[in-house]
Amino acid sequence: MSTTTAPLFPTLRLRRWQGVLLALLAVVLAALLVFVIVQPIKVLPRIRLAPGFALRTADGSLLTNESLRGRFVLYSFTYVGCQAHTCPETDAIMRAVQSHLRQGRIGEVPVSLVTIVLDPENATAAALQAYAGRVGADPAIWHFVTGDPTTLKTVVGAGFEVFYEAQADGSYVFSPAMFLVDGWGIVRAAYRPVIHPPSADRILQHLNVLEREVRNSRGIARLGYEAAHLFLCYAP
C-alpha cells in the first residue's frame, strides 16, 4: 500500500509579473538592509533647538544666537575664578579646536567657539578679557559672554539643560558640558562627562561630519542624508 504525504510547505505558484514585483521588493529591502548595516552616510542627530540669547561679550557688544546663524558653534561654560580641574580641561579642548580652526581645516562653513561665563557679578569686561587672554582665545573665533543671572539661568539652565549653582565661597557647582550647534541653531552633539566625554579629536571629527552633511546634502544626495537621519546612522 502506498501513501502520499502533503508537502510541508505548499509550492508558491506565481505569475511572471508577481515574481518580478517580488524580486523588486526583495532588492529594495536588501538595499535598505545594506544601508542600515553598512551605514555609508553618517550624520549627527538633531537633538533639540539651542537656546536663543543676547549676551554681553568682553568688548561690551551683544552676541546673539541669530548672529551665529549659518555657523557651527561649540559652546562651553565656566566662571571667572574657576580653579577646578574641569575648567582648565574644557579650556584646553576649546584651545585645541581653535588651533585646528586657525589652520582652516573644516571646509567652507565658519566655526565659532562661545564660552558662557556663569558669574556676571565677577565677569566684568576686564575680567572676561583677562580670562580670554589667559586661555589663549583668538577674539575672531572664541567669544566669552555673560548676562544677567535670570537670562543666564534661562539660557544655560532651561536652554542647554546644564545645572549650575553658586556656592557660598563664590565658586560654582556645574556640569562641565559642551555642545555643538549647527547653522540652523540645532544642537547636534552634547558632550557630558562619563556619558559622552568631550575631546578635541571627537569634536573635530563631528565638525567634519557636519561639514560633509552641509556640503553633500543637496539634490538627490539629500535623500540619502535624510535616510541616514531616519535610520539613526549616527557618527560615534
Partner: peptide, 16 residues
Amino acid sequence: PAEIAAVASPLGVYFA
C-alpha cells in the same frame, strides 16, 4: 516680559 523670555529662549528664539 519674564514669562515671554522663559518661553522664547528654550525654543531658540532671541529678542532684544
